[in-house]
Design a protein around this nucleic acid. Structure first.
Lengths: 338, 338
DNA sequence: TTGAAAGCGCTAACAG
DNA sequence: CTGTTAGCGCTTTCAA
């Protein structure tokens, strides 16, 4: 009796009906005699029958697995995690399951995971691209499965793209500081080769157009940022305000300002929000991304494509929000207000 | 030509070999003439053939999907996210993919998701149970797919369980404070009905056996914790040290201590670590869980079961680590050291 | 070493 | 409303 899990045939025999009738009941078709429905249900229950999705998929016409793939930088990182959660909620409302994976800046891994998803026939893919080119998708993915890119733009493959408003956010930080009287504003940034890093630095420089402040980039971690900030503040014509381009850099700069006792005199606006930023002293003003909205938007875009939407790919920017908490409102001179 | 994706049959025709030969090549069997292998490979490339995992699964004997399911409280929460990442890394080293879902304390959702995974034949399941009973697993899951529970114990279903050392961690916090001279230690905790909350409170009380301090529980959020702390500190015989049972409570208590100007005189140890805890003033001493290790351990346990291990289920506790940073080393009186 | 035939569990198409 | 037949894409068995 324990020869593997029960099949529809087993159920049919047990209920004394045909295979097809079981199929009808299991799939909720209404054109079945209530009496037979009851018999089938009973057989299903006593045999612990569970439908075999793979088998049904194989035969079915609409070839949908009810699964979508999600490939992010690192599902353990807060940004990716919140985005993931938002996608999950959207997927859930459609009855879709999520296959997830992390890429860690590894282009090979990106392709390998995309292939693995393709073999499992996900109905769609949301991808935060890391490789220099996504042309491989055209080969590895069946032509009818749509891809939506998040956080970074893709190359070599057309798909809707949902990005954070990095350039605009950096500009907003600068204008906020200008409004508070600062005229000498520094930027400490991360990797210049990443799309995010590039966009933020560009936003900073454009907003400052006529009087660019000192810029340091490619700072990998808090200690490097701390050293860079100390150097800057000890140098000639030190900045009265600093914009930091990534969370670890913000942390390093906070340490530097504290160490120098300048945390109440030099203004700071961090790009990317910091958890517990409001418990610090001074509380840290930040430009926050909205990963939940990015995820929701990407999922919605994907669903529209799955449903057949067929116009040219769009690029959607999710605006950032500047959250004033104190560090960014430190006045920069006589022109500064309140 | 564009009638769906190519099948093995298409490849066979294109390469002028039999279906079975293609199958052999695709599955890396070595008993094929190199010349035919080359022809098949070429056909695969030009047709963009990708194997259909579902179809192979259906026919195959070993019925493995190469997928495992992971159901956590909330994949967007840092604890779950880090655990998720650790499971992913372990799964990757085995070539397994991950199907993920969040449960949000919803028992119905737990069962529903477990069923959805079962229909897709995951080879195993890692579950952070939320419902009062997991007996349904015996019915909904095929008997040969193993389940490992994380973070909370399960009921009504036998499986390996990987838990954080909540009770021990709370005890360690108390002993740390006793060592620093405190004799009046309060506990502000969260939901008493959760396994975690219960264990932590028990650990606190046991470590304090002879002179229990004041205990407040079921604090839902930071404001509630803040109010409770203020009340306690304004009351008669106020504590000289506080242990907080959950992250939001720690945040509320920090606010209370700051507001009262007691943050340098009342000691604080938080259960669960706080991001940026070292930037606060004073830096917050915490008892940190190790979600990465919990995830890794759970994944390893699951793999052993998948590989056929068949001894009675184990319960594994992952130890916590007390990280002294300042707030927990505030002295409690003349007996206190250093 | 290669191939033909059968069939995994299920649904589509077409009868009854 | 119900049943029969064929076959999804693949691997198995067995024969050449």
């Amino acid at each position: 009796m324990t020869e593997g899990r029960p099949t529809m045939n087993d159920v049919a025999r047990h209920a004394g009906v045909s295979l097809k009738t079981v199929s009808r009941v299991v799939n909720g078709e209404t054109t079945v005699d209530p009496e037979l429905v009851a018999r089938v249900r009973a057989a299903v229950a006593t045999l612990h029958y569970r439908p075999h999705l793979g088998a049904s998929l194989l035969r079915r016409n609409d070839r949908r697995t009810g699964t979508i793939g999600l490939l992010l930088q690192d599902v353990g990182d807060p940004f990716s995690a919140v985005l993931h959660r938002a996608v999950e909620d959207a997927a859930r409302s459609r009855g879709l399951l999520l296959l997830t994976g992390s890429l860690d800046e590894d282009a090979d891994r990106e392709r390998e995971q995309a292939r693995a998803f393709a073999r499992r026939h996900t109905d769609g893919l949301i991808l935060a691209p890391v490789g220099p080119d996504q042309g491989y998708l055209a080969l590895d993915l069946p032509p009818d499965i749509p891809v939506v890119f998040v956080d970074r733009p893709a190359r070599g493959f057309a798909g809707d793209t949902v990005l954070a408003g990095d350039e605009a956010g950096a500009g907003e930080a600068v204008r906020h500081l200008l409004r508070h009287g600062h005229r000498r504003i520094a930027y400490l940034g991360g990797d210049r080769r990443s799309a995010t890093g590039r966009d933020r630095q560009r936003g900073f420089l454009r907003a400052l157009a006529d009087r660019p402040g000192p810029v340091v980039h490619d700072l990998p971690d808090p200690p490097a940022a701390e050293r860079a900030a100390i150097l800057l503040l000890h140098g000639p014509d030190p900045p009265t305000a600093i914009v930091t381009g990534r969370r670890p850099i913000t942390v390093g700069v906070i340490r530097a300002l504290r160490g120098l006792g300048r945390h109440r005199s030099v203004a700071l606006v961090g790009l990317d929000d910091l958890p517990l930023a409001d418990l610090l002293d001074p509380a840290v003003t930040a430009v926050a991304q909205d990963p939940a909205r990015i995820g929701r938007t990407a999922a919605d875009a994907l669903f529209e494509r799955i449903d057949g939407r067929d116009d040219p790919p769009r690029e959607i920017r999710i605006p950032t929000a500047l959250i004033p908490r104190g560090s960014g409102e430190i006045s920069g001179g006589p022109t500064g207000s309140s």
